[in-house]
């Protein structure tokens, strides 16, 4: 059987559908869990960056510097290197370096700083007059965060999480290549190493579909919350 020709892409009888579905589920699971943690962690980091930015107190300035440095460093490390770099930490935290669970620490640590920057930008885009109006009414910092910053930047926060989750889906595939499971793993092992092009094609189509669905949900949410 010729497994190298163009026709090999369409030899779907070679696809083990049970494997395909469980790999899909693993990809979705990795993406969902990490996106939830990234949303919370990134929002907190972004808030920290925003609140300490341009402050006159020394404590805040140092905190801003430390957080900004952390964010910049982890945003710069190529993902594939980050996984390898974090292997000992992953072993310590998750108790394993194989499977979807093991992919979570690297996924979160690479995406959270990225999202933190998006959150900070979203907050900076809020009309300063609105924040000042809240101040003039006697609002506390916490009230301003809960009642002004978050709701007024919600469309940007949601579209930010959409962008982040799409790049996370890409990362899960990369993590899959070195043993995290999921569609990337399947495409690499069954598709590339076992020379089964149909598996690679199906895995690709499913990933593209997941990305489309993400984008679609994100767009709908933004449209519903944006009353500007």
């Amino acid at each position: 059987m010729d497994n190298n020709g163009f026709a090999s892409y369409f030899r779907f009888s070679n696809v083990d559908w049970n494997n395909m579905w469980s790999a899909t589920w693993e990809t979705v699971w990795m993406t969902l869990v990490s996106i939830i943690v990234v949303a919370i962690l990134g929002a907190l980091l972004g808030l920290l960056l925003f609140e300490t930015n341009g402050s006159s107190s020394w404590g805040a300035r140092i905190l801003n510097w430390v957080v900004a440095a952390f964010v910049n460093i982890f945003r710069s490390i190529p993902f594939i290197i980050l996984i390898v770099l974090l292997l000992p930490a992953t072993q310590a935290i998750m108790g394993t370096i194989i499977g979807p669970k093991a992919a979570l620490p690297s996924l979160i640590i690479s995406a959270a700083p990225f999202y933190a920057r998006l959150v900070e930008i979203a907050f900076h885009e809020i009309d300063h007059g609105v924040i000042e109006a809240a101040q003039s009414m006697g609002a506390t910092r916490t009230q301003i965060i809960g009642k002004v910053l978050l709701p007024e930047s919600m469309p940007a926060l949601v579209s930010g999480i959409t962008v982040t989750s799409i790049s996370l889906i890409g990362y899960t595939a990369m993590a899959g290549a070195i043993g995290a499971g999921g569609l990337g793993n399947l495409a690499y092992l069954d598709g590339f190493q076992a020379n089964n092009n149909a598996v690679t094609l199906v895995a690709t189509v499913i990933i593209v579909l997941i990305v489309f669905i993400c984008q679609f949900i994100g767009d709908i949410l933004v449209k519903r919350i944006d009353k500007r």
Partner: peptide
Amino acid sequence: MIFQHFNLLWSRTVIENIEFPLEIA
């Protein structure tokens, strides 16, 4: 205080905007 550019919260309705300072209080 009232402002030149109104400074309303776009994410809130008229009634919710008026409620805003009451929530603060």
